[in-house]
Amino acid sequence: MTARVALVTGAGRGIGREIARRLSGEGLRVALVARDRDQLARTASGCAGATMVLPADVTEPEAAEHVHAEIERTWGPVEVLVAGAGAGHSARLERTTDADWQRMLDLNLTAPFRFVRRAVPAMRDAGWGRIVVVASSAAHIGEPYIAAYTASKHGVLGLVRSAAAELARTGVTVNAVCPGYVDTPMTEATIANIVASSGRSPEQAREALERKQPIGRLITPAEVADAVWFCVASSAVTGQAINVDGGAVQ
Rank of each mutant, 00 (worst) to 15 (best):
108 N>L: 03
233 A>H: 05
30 V>I: 12
103 R>F: 11
77 P>N: 06
217 R>A: 04
136 S>Q: 05
193 N>T: 07
73 R>P: 03
46 G>M: 08
10 G>N: 02
31 A>L: 13
25 G>S: 08
243 N>T: 09
18 E>D: 11
1 M>F: 12
110 T>P: 10
175 N>L: 05
204 Q>A: 07
209 L>H: 10
141 I>H: 13
224 V>R: 05
217 R>E: 00
142 G>P: 02
11 A>C: 08
201 S>D: 04
127 G>E: 11
2 T>Y: 15
109 L>Q: 09
65 E>H: 04
161 R>Y: 08
22 R>T: 09
160 V>R: 05
157 L>P: 05
46 G>Y: 14
14 G>R: 04
27 G>I: 08
100 D>P: 15
83 A>K: 07
147 A>R: 04
66 H>M: 13
185 P>T: 11
247 G>C: 08
71 I>V: 01
119 A>G: 12
95 R>Y: 10
31 A>G: 07
53 V>W: 01
86 G>I: 03
9 T>K: 13
239 G>A: 10
157 L>E: 04
204 Q>R: 12
41 A>F: 13
183 D>T: 11
21 R>C: 08
225 A>S: 08
87 A>K: 07
85 A>R: 06
213 Q>M: 09
70 E>S: 14
32 L>Y: 03
247 G>F: 11
11 A>W: 02
68 H>F: 06
238 T>L: 08
173 T>W: 02
39 Q>K: 15
234 S>Y: 03
3 A>F: 11
27 G>H: 07
130 R>H: 00
188 E>A: 09
133 V>F: 04
230 F>M: 09
185 P>I: 15
36 D>E: 10
175 N>Y: 02
